[in-house]
Design a protein around this nucleic acid. Structure first.
Lengths: 208, 208
DNA sequence: GTCTATATCGGGATAGAC
DNA sequence: GTCTATCCCGATATAGAC
């Protein structure tokens, strides 16, 4: 089964990602992970001992992929408008290609809250700094006193929700795969415009 | 077990809602549904024959609860701004009280796409009318040519996402239940303001 | 309609040979 | 490290008594 350069452990992890992302913890089968990796079921246990462990590895991978890029963009020294534009564009692209990840993460938080909390602590993820950073930058550049929490959640909502709701959108609007792709492309400009227009609105409000 | 006025079948359905909403299809156990309803496991099979059937009943209930109110508000003869305000306020309240429903529905669309599609067809849910209606109303009242699909998705995203992401918000921001409640209360004004400000922004754009 | 008992199967996990 | 065989529990579903 040495059909690629990757090690067996890596191939199992890749297989586990595929299966867990689509099926979630409860829906996933160790057998399916083994099949997907082209190995025996026992080997999965050999490398990861049990289902919880391999799930955790998959979750950690997905979560840090999202967070790393998010921090990278928001802590960069770009101006705020560029941050929004780049963030949305990057996230829509990344999530479209990995459309199972966001729902997988949200489900994980419900299914395995303790496991996840422990992981977050370990990763030392601190949003307070990020909030303060957003608040300050919006004040300095746009001369607005806004609540960074709500703005942050709004940005995430507009970028992430349409990807999560992919099957809903396809079913309800009757979109083909191509039409959905186009829809996502459009969002790369629609969403930043929407957010920046909203902020401009507050600006005008303040001037009245 | 005649401890309430409801019939056994109703009690089972209520129990099934609780369990399916929290655990999803794969995570739910027929035994747990029976326990929650205070009846024997076999009775659940007696009334619903199998797990798929009872899941479908639960899904249909959740979905039509959401859609009915949505249609009611958007097809009413309120002006558009009021629609937004009322919609967001109602949805944030409803979803906060039933915070498992949106994720449950989204998961259902991935887990049981065929079952769900058949149901949607049966319910005869037609969004084209709604889109045309939004487009027309925004044009007449706000004098804006906008894409109703994107606006519609934006409204849903801003209303629904924070509820889905509840455990994420609580874990990351370290919110207590009371703080989260307050956060949701705030969104009832923050979100309509955000949307209406964004539209105002387009308005200004057009005038330049 | 409601219960007990049981059939049947699938899935996580382990033992042990190679 | 990798495989086969197997254990054992838990979960859906059914049969049948009351």
């Amino acid at each position: 089964m040495e059909n690629s350069t990757s090690t067996t452990e890596e191939r199992i992890l890749e297989a586990a990602k595929k299966v867990f992302h689509c099926k979630g913890f409860d829906g996933a089968r160790m057998q399916e992970i083994a099949d997907e990796a082209g190995v025996n079921k026992s080997l999965v246990h050999y490398y990861y001992r049990n289902k919880d462990n391999i799930f955790q590895a998959v979750f950690e991978d997905a979560f840090s992929k999202l967070i790393t890029k998010l921090n990278e963009i928001f802590y960069s020294d770009l101006d705020f408008k560029s941050k929004i534009t780049i963030f949305v564009s990057y996230y829509v692209s990344f999530l479209s290609e990995n459309s199972y990840i966001p729902l997988f993460i949200l489900n994980g938080l419900y299914e395995k809250p303790d496991m996840i909390k422990a992981m977050l602590k370990k990763k030392n993820f601190a949003p307070e700094k990020l909030m303060e950073q957003i608040r300050k930058q919006v004040k300095e550049e746009l001369h607005l006193e806004i609540d960074p929490f709500h703005l942050y959640i709004n940005i995430l909502a507009l970028s992430i929700f349409p990807v999560i709701a992919k099957p809903l959108i396809q079913t309800i609007f009757g979109y083909s795969n191509d039409q959905l792709k186009q829809f996502n492309e459009e969002r790369k400009t629609v969403v930043p415009d929407f957010i920046l227009n909203a902020l401009k609105g507050y600006e005008n409000e303040h001037r009245n």
